[in-house]
């Protein structure tokens, strides 16, 4: 298992700038991303829409050429050996990529054929995949008639059809209902347990937290934090007391009041909410209430929450992913 030590994907200062015509500003979509992804893990790339996740993925899957920087994917140099990389990776784009005018079976056969399987091998592989991903019920129906969940199962099957070492999934559960999502997560875990490394992007906090083994948080084209979900949350230092204050004067007053207290580790305001990070929040909640009441700072809601990845994002960027990330 010594091979486990070499990362399956390494990037060094990967950048992508889209050059625009004169008079328009160039778009620096990815401003320098350095990552290491270990074999056999579910690696999550968490960030809001427009952070540069898809662009990074398109560079790593050889679709787009980087403007600068280096990367090694499945042991091959991204700039020198894109063809060899393609042989060993799978990619499921946001749109999926199934041909809507034909059925799952034909899509899977074509996919296997694209990677060099003979006709009979491809048919055999397609049947295996249909079984594995429980597609048989709708395998001979046109793809355009599928539900969101059915379609995503086919997309995933297409992604692993050629038994890649590493599979990239771009926002794989966007638009899925909770049940389909849970089912999809199980499928992804199964693929990991078969020894495939998974690199997925998401803007869902719960997905990053529950599904991913390791995370890199990206915002505005750069990685702002990375680690296991637990490690990232532990950095926050204790729990957060979240106080909802609609009046902006009161919000400022509350912040000034609490920032002086010794028990407060960190304090932020974001969209009518005051985030107070403390240790042992249960004991301090009453103190905070008393302080606010004494100084006549009126507030509407108050709650205590365990540290979440949103707190991590808020600390690193000053914005909440929960409110800013949806679109």
């Amino acid at each position: 298992m010594s091979a486990k030590d070499t990362p399956i994907l390494i990037t060094k200062n990967l950048q992508k700038t889209f050059f625009m015509k004169k008079g328009k500003d160039d778009v620096r979509a990815v401003k320098g991303v350095s990552l290491e992804v270990q074999k056999g893990q579910i690696f999550g790339f968490l960030g809001p829409n427009g952070a540069g996740k898809t662009t990074t993925l398109q560079m790593l899957t050889t679709v787009l050429a980087p403007t600068s920087g280096q990367a090694t994917v499945v042991g091959f140099d991204l700039l020198k050996d894109p063809k060899k990389i393609r042989q060993h990776i799978g990619y499921v784009s946001q749109a999926g990529g199934a041909d809507g005018m034909t059925d799952a079976l034909q899509n899977l056969i074509l996919q296997a054929r694209l990677y060099g399987a003979s006709k009979s091998e491809a048919e055999k592989r397609a049947k295996e995949l249909i079984e594995q991903f429980e597609i048989s019920e709708f395998a001979t129906r046109k793809v355009i008639s599928y539900s969101g969940g059915q379609r995503r199962r086919l997309d995933l099957a297409l992604g692993v059809a050629h038994k890649p070492q590493l599979i990239f999934l771009d926002e794989p559960t966007t638009g899925l209902d909770p049940q389909s999502r849970a089912h999809f997560w199980d499928e992804i875990r199964k693929i990991r347990d078969d020894g495939v490394t998974i690199f997925l992007t998401t803007h869902y906090l719960d997905e990053a937290d529950n599904l991913c083994d390791y995370l890199a948080i990206i915002d505005n084209g750069t990685v702002v934090a990375e680690g296991t979900p637990k490690h990232l949350k532990d950095q926050i230092g204790g729990e957060s007391i979240v106080i909802g204050i609609e009046n902006s004067k009161d919000l400022e007053k509350g912040k000034e009041l609490l920032v002086k207290e010794k028990f407060v580790n960190k304090i932020y305001t974001n969209e009518n909410k005051l985030y107070v990070y403390v240790k042992e929040g249960e004991k301090l909640l009453a103190d905070v209430l008393r302080l606010m009441d004494n100084k006549k700072v009126s507030f509407q809601t108050i709650g205590l929450s365990k540290p979440s990845l949103d707190d991590v994002f808020l600390q690193k960027t000053g914005r909440s992913l929960r409110e800013g990330g949806e679109s």
Binding site: T61, T62, V63, Y91, S93, Q94, A95, A98, D99, L158
Partner: peptide
């Protein structure tokens, strides 16, 4: 539909 991207990869 992303089909072309699938071919490009």
């Amino acid at each position: 539909t992303g089909f072309i991207t699938r071919l490009l990869v």
